[in-house]
Design a protein around this nucleic acid. Structure first.
Ligand SMILES: [Zn+2]
Ligand SMILES: [Zn+2]
Ligand SMILES: [Zn+2]
Ligand SMILES: [Zn+2]
Lengths: 160, 160
DNA sequence: TATGAACTGTTATGCTATAACAAAATCGGC
DNA sequence: GCCGATTTTGTTATAGCATAACAGTTCATA
């Protein structure tokens, strides 16, 4: 790990297992093919709650002894994102698993600059507010990126 | 130009002149050194309202006959951003001039996917809403990136 | 004009992402 | 099961974005 451990201690094995199980179910339902590679990349993405770069995933794949090149990873990520199983963190050029892949959505994120964790949130109405204001400019919104950086609960300075 | 012309026809020469004049004044006031290179990069950034990549700026600098390498551009951009004269568009790895550099602020952007233009907006209260929700998660926000993509007024499909 | 601080030049390198094409696996109809 | 069409994967090469490191220059000011 290049970053500190996950901000919130918890049964992370459960996070991983749950994410993979959901992915299996969803892809089954949708007739999408969660192939071995794709599933493995998803599992690697879920190794932590901190977004992970494509080339770090590539290293992990290679540690498996697999033959892998950048397109291997990027294709898998493209598929996983198309299925809503993974989101891209624009301000980090990195990827993180989605805990709520059942319903399609764009995620909003809190990104801890100390431990690296990404927390997906839903700031109710914010997207609609932005769409409404955009409309006043004659602008039709099709996608939004909302990412906040700062310090998570566990990484607050001690004098808080 | 690699993109279509600016979405809104207007006296863009005025945009450029105004931006440079404001930059001169602000840097003067602040004792910041708006050197020749930095001023030239700012002028180049302002050639359009569409965010421009660092390497495109580099090309333009070289067309001036100047010796320039990537750090030349990135250093200038770093300075201009530190002075609030330029904002970075995360979802495009590109940079755009700020029309309101007097007061320090983080910008929110509408990005047209057709003509490339970036419109800086202020969605009142959205940042505070996000900060408030973050606080509920024990999260202290220090910076936010809010970028919406879609179609600007002039780029709407004809059947609208 | 000496001196330190800020800025710039230059070379090299690292990280992120995709193009292009060949090979293999998978699926559906026969 | 076999075959052609489609999808996925392998492989090589390259494009695009950003910074490290160090040397040289300019600038403010004492
Ligand atoms: Zn977990
Ligand atoms: Zn943290
Ligand atoms: Zn203009
Ligand atoms: Zn447009």
């Amino acid at each position: 790990m290049t970053k500190a451990a996950a901000a919130t201690p918890h049964d992370h094995a459960h996070c991983i297992a749950s994410a993979l199980a959901q992915a299996d179910t969803l892809c089954e339902q949708r007739g999408a093919r969660l192939t071995k590679n794709r599933r493995r990349v998803l599992e690697l993405v879920w190794q932590s709650h901190a977004p992970v770069g494509a080339y770090e995933l590539l290293e992990r794949l290679r540690e498996d002894g697999l033959s892998a090149a950048p397109p291997t990873v990027y294709r898998a990520l493209e598929f996983l994102m198309s299925q809503g199983l993974v989101h891209r963190i624009e301000t980090r050029n990195a990827f993180v698993g989605c805990p709520q892949p059942q319903h399609e959505h764009e995620a909003q994120y809190l990104l801890c600059e100390a431990c690296g964790d990404a927390v997906e949130i839903d700031v109710g109405g914010v997207r609609r507010r932005i769409e409404a204001l955009a409309a006043q400019h004659g602008f039709t919104v099709t996608a939004q990126t909302i990412e906040a950086r700062g310090l998570c609960r566990r990484c607050q300075p001690a004098d808080a």
